[in-house]
C-alpha cells in the first residue's frame, strides 16, 4: 500500500498542536524541510525532542512553535550557540522555554526503552554529576542482583510524532540508510506516528536486493515523503555535503530576533514548499555540494529457491 504523501499533507495530518515531536538525525539526515513545514503551518505548544537541538530547532523555537525542549546537547556544531533558544532560556524572550536534559547515552536509551516497550532503561552514567539534581527523571537504582552495583535509569520516550530522513524508501515506507545512523531507527520504533522523508522513493525490489540496509520497516511508517535536498544545510551521505557555510551564516542571522524573523519571512513563510526553497538557492549551489562517488562493494546474498 502506498503511503506516499506531500510534506504539506503529512504534516497537516500527523503533527498536531501540543504534540511531542522528534526530528532526529545526528548531524546527518536532519530533516529541515519538515521543520520548515511545521513552522509554515504554525503549529504551537510542541514539545520538541532531539539529542542535538541545532539550527533546525533554533529556527523552529525562534518561530514560536515549541514550549518545551528535551535534549542532550544544544548548539550550532562547529560554530557556537543557538541564539534563539538561548534568548528563551536565559531571558524568557519572547517567552520562557521549559527544558529537560540528559546526556547523549541517556537520550539514546530513552528512545531504546520507548521502542522496546520497557518501563525504564539502566545505564552506567551520571555518577557524581550534577545532571540528576536538575532532572528528577534520572533516578539511581541498585541492581536486583547486586545491591552494591548502582546504575541510573531513564524513562522511555515515546514521541507522538517522529520525523526521520533516509536516503531512500519504497512507497510502503521501508527505508534504507547508510552513513551515520543517529537514532533514526530507535525514534521511529518509539514514536506513535512516523513520517519518513527520503531523497528518492524507489521500487520495492531495490529495497529487497539489500535487506541488511533497511533500518525502518514500513510497518511502523505512516507517511513517506519524497523531498530531495530536504536535509539542507544538513546532509545526506552520497547525495549532498553538509553546507557548513550556512551553519556559519546562521550564527549571524539568529543573533537578533529581527534578522531571524526576516530570514523566516524570506525562506519559510515566503515559500509554499521545499521545492521552491531548492529552486531559490539555484542549481550552482546544489552542484557545489555534490560529492564524488564512492560506491560500496557488492555482497552476494545467494539465491535459495
Amino acid at each position: 500500500m502506498s503511503k506516499v504523501a506531500t510534506m504539506q499533507d503529512a504534516v497537516r495530518d500527523l503533527v498536531r498542536d501540543g504534540d511531542t515531536v522528534a526530528i532526529e538525525g545526528f548531524t546527518h539526515l536532519i530533516c529541515f524541510a519538515a521543520g520548515h513545514e511545521i513552522i509554515r503551518q504554525r503549529r504551537r505548544d510542541l514539545t520538541l525532542a532531539r539529542m542535538t537541538p541545532d539550527v533546525i530547532y533554533d529556527q523552529m523555537i525562534g518561530a514560536g512553535v515549541a514550549s518545551k525542549l528535551i535534549f542532550s546537547w544544544m548548539g550550532n556544531p562547529g560554530v557556537g550557540n543557538l541564539h534563539a533558544v538561548r534568548r528563551r532560556i536565559e531571558k524568557a524572550d519572547p517567552a520562557p522555554l521549559e527544558i529537560e536534559e540528559y546526556s547523549h547515552f541517556g537520550m539514546v536509551c530513552r528512545y531504546m526503552a520507548g521502542a522496546s516497550n520497557l518501563p525504564f532503561f539502566p545505564i552506567r552514567s551520571y555518577y557524581e554529576s550534577d545532571i540528576p539534581s536538575v532532572n528528577p527523571k534520572i533516578v539511581p537504582m541498585s541492581s536486583p542482583y547486586d545491591e552494591d552495583d548502582q546504575v541510573f535509569v531513564v524513562p522511555p520516550l515515546n514521541p507522538d510524532v517522529a520525523i526521520v530522513h533516509a536516503q531512500r524508501a519504497d512507497a510502503g515506507g521501508d527505508a534504507q540508510i547508510w552513513g551515520l545512523l543517529g537514532c533514526q531507527k530507535e525514534v521511529a520504533f518509539a514514536a506513535r506516528r512516523v513520517i519518513v522523508v527520503v531523497e528518492e522513493v524507489v521500487e520495492e525490489s531495490v529495497i529487497r536486493r539489500d535487506p541488511n540496509r533497511t533500518v525502518i520497516p514500513g510497518a511502523v511508517v505512516d507517511a513517506v515523503v519524497e523531498e530531495p535536498f530536504a536535509c539542507h544545510p544538513s546532509f545526506a551521505q552520497g547525495y549532498y555535503d553538509r553546507d557548513n557555510r550556512f551553519y556559519l551564516e546562521w550564527d549571524r542571522i539568529a543573533k537578533e530576533p529581527e534578522t531571524l524573523e526576516a530570514w523566516l519571512d524570506e525562506w519559510v513563510y515566503g515559500l509554499s514548499n521545499h521545492a521552491e526553497y531548492v529552486q531559490k538557492f539555484g542549481d550552482a549551489h546544489w552542484d557545489g555540494l555534490r560529492p564524488e562517488p564512492a560506491l560500496s562493494g557488492e555482497v552476494d546474498y545467494g539465491r535459495y529457491a
Binding site: F26, T27, H28, M51, P77, G78, H104, F105, V108, C109, M112, W178, G179, L180, L181, G182, C183, K185, E186, F235, Q237, D241, R242, N244, P291, A294
Partner: peptide
C-alpha cells in the same frame, strides 16, 4: 572534519555503528 558528524568520517571507515552500539 568541521563537525563530529562530517560525511568524510563515514566514507572509508572501519565501521559505522548505531549510537546505542557506540555508547554501550
Amino acid at each position: 572534519p568541521l563537525s563530529i558528524g562530517d560525511p568524510t568520517l563515514a566514507t572509508g571507515s572501519t565501521a559505522v555503528t548505531s549510537m546505542f552500539d557506540l555508547f554501550a
